[in-house]
Simulated scan of single mutants.
Amino acid sequence: MNNDDKRRIIGLTGGIGTGKTTVSNYLASVYNLPILDADVYARDAVKVGSTILNLIAERYGLDILLPDGTLDRGRLGNVVFNNFEERRWLEQQIHPFVRDRIVEAIDNFNLHPTVVLVVPLLFEAEMTDLCTEVWVVSCSQQQQIQRLIQRDRLTFEQAQLRINSQMPIDQKCAKADVVLDNSSTLEFLLQQVDAAIKSFEC
């Protein structure tokens, strides 16, 4: 990646369930910004026939796969969110793949003055060097848990484990150029997004 042209590359991150997708959808629909989603690339990393999926199956056994050969994400989640060493091993397989795909995509969008990288583990995966600014979407942990239970049908304990697996949201906020508070209304959140776009315009 070469950012000598001083393009604006926004790294959008936050805790699980804080509202990153809401913000990225708004940036795409209202400002027509290209969205590079790390979760999409992470799914590509474990598609059927991929080297990484084969490594996962070798490590955890064929029970980690569904009958059609795809990854059983629920089963894998139960493993890695309960075991730091296993989660670290998995991230070591996936993060380099995701980073390479993001770098390639940034270069492919070289005619766009502003690009948004949506990376839930932006800090944890040490990808902040790819960005010119970092935005963190924040809300209370109680709101995160409620959203995860409702959205992903997790138990309270499962939601808590997923939140605890990430860097605490206050630490992310302390490292951010922009903090978007999603603890109130949607209108309030989007007003903050508008202000951030305008205040950081080159």
Rank of each mutant, 00 (worst) to 15 (best):
N2I: 07
N3F: 09
D4V: 05
R7C: 02
R8C: 03
I10R: 13
G19Y: 07
V23L: 15
N25Y: 05
Y31T: 02
Y31L: 10
N32T: 03
L33M: 15
Y41R: 13
A42P: 00
D44Q: 14
T51S: 15
I52W: 02
L53S: 09
L53I: 05
N54P: 02
L55R: 10
D63K: 11
L66M: 15
L66G: 05
G69T: 01
G69K: 13
R73Y: 03
R75K: 15
G77Y: 05
F81I: 06
N83P: 00
F84T: 13
E85C: 08
E85F: 06
R87W: 04
R87C: 08
Q92K: 14
I94F: 09
I94E: 05
H95S: 06
F97E: 13
R99W: 10
R99A: 14
R101E: 15
V103I: 11
I106W: 03
N108F: 00
N108P: 00
N110L: 09
N110T: 04
N110W: 02
H112W: 00
H112L: 07
V116R: 14
V116H: 09
L117I: 12
V118G: 00
L121P: 01
E124A: 12
E124C: 08
E124N: 08
A125E: 11
T128R: 14
V136C: 07
S138Q: 13
C139N: 13
S140D: 05
Q141N: 12
Q144S: 13
Q146G: 04
Q146H: 07
L148N: 02
I149K: 14
Q150L: 15
D152C: 07
R153D: 09
T155Q: 14
F156D: 03
A159I: 00
I163P: 11
N164G: 11
M167Y: 01
P168G: 09
P168C: 14
I169E: 12
C173A: 13
C173N: 13
V179G: 03
N182M: 08
S184R: 12
E187P: 00
F188L: 15
K198N: 12
K198C: 10
F200P: 00
E201W: 01
